[in-house]
Every structure is written in C-alpha cells, then in structure tokens.
Simulated assay, not measured.
Amino acid sequence: MSVRRTVTVSITPEQDALLRAFLASGRYRSISEVLRSALRLLERDEAAALAAIRIPAAQGEAHRG
C-alpha cells in the first residue's frame, strides 16, 4: 500500500454540500475517496489538454521541416 499524507484544504459551502452528496449516494465511503477520484479526473483532463496543445505543435513542425 502506498504511503498516505494528510493535508488540510478549505472548501466553500457549495463544495462541502457536493462532497456530502457524493457520500450520501453510497458510491464513496469517505471524503478522501471523493477527492482522490477528483484528482485522478483532473490528472486525466490535464494530460488530455497538454496532448491537445502538443499535437498541433508537432504537426506544425512536420509541415515546416
């Protein structure tokens, strides 16, 4: 099992309500699970955004070369 680190974050009342709704749904057992899932989605989205930037740049390089 990986080493875990505890962090403290500040959230808005709306974000708190969203976290509680996810917990109430039964899909997640803890706020930590919700946040880990959210971070995985953010990581995926960031990778896709970077790829979208790099692909046109690489295509531009190929046309110039």
Rank of each mutant, 00 (worst) to 15 (best):
I53S: 04
Q15G: 06
S25F: 11
I55G: 01
V3L: 15
G26A: 05
A58F: 12
S32F: 04
R64N: 04
T8I: 09
I55M: 09
T6C: 02
L35Y: 02
L42R: 13
G26K: 08
R54H: 14
E14S: 14
R29G: 15
D45Y: 09
R5C: 00
A24K: 07
Q15F: 12
A58H: 11
L35V: 14
A49M: 08
G65W: 05
G60L: 13
I55Y: 13
A52C: 00
M1Q: 07
L42K: 14
L23N: 05
L39H: 11
D45L: 12
S37I: 00
L42N: 08
R20C: 05
V3E: 14
L35T: 04
S32G: 08
V7W: 15
T8W: 12
A38E: 10
A24C: 01
E14H: 07
H63G: 00
R27Q: 10
L35G: 02
S32H: 02
A47V: 10
R29P: 02
A52V: 00
R36F: 02
S25N: 05
E43I: 04
A17R: 15
S37Q: 14
R5M: 00
A49E: 06
D16P: 01
R54M: 08
V34P: 02
P56G: 02
A57S: 02
E14L: 13
R36G: 02
S30H: 14
A24H: 08
H63P: 00
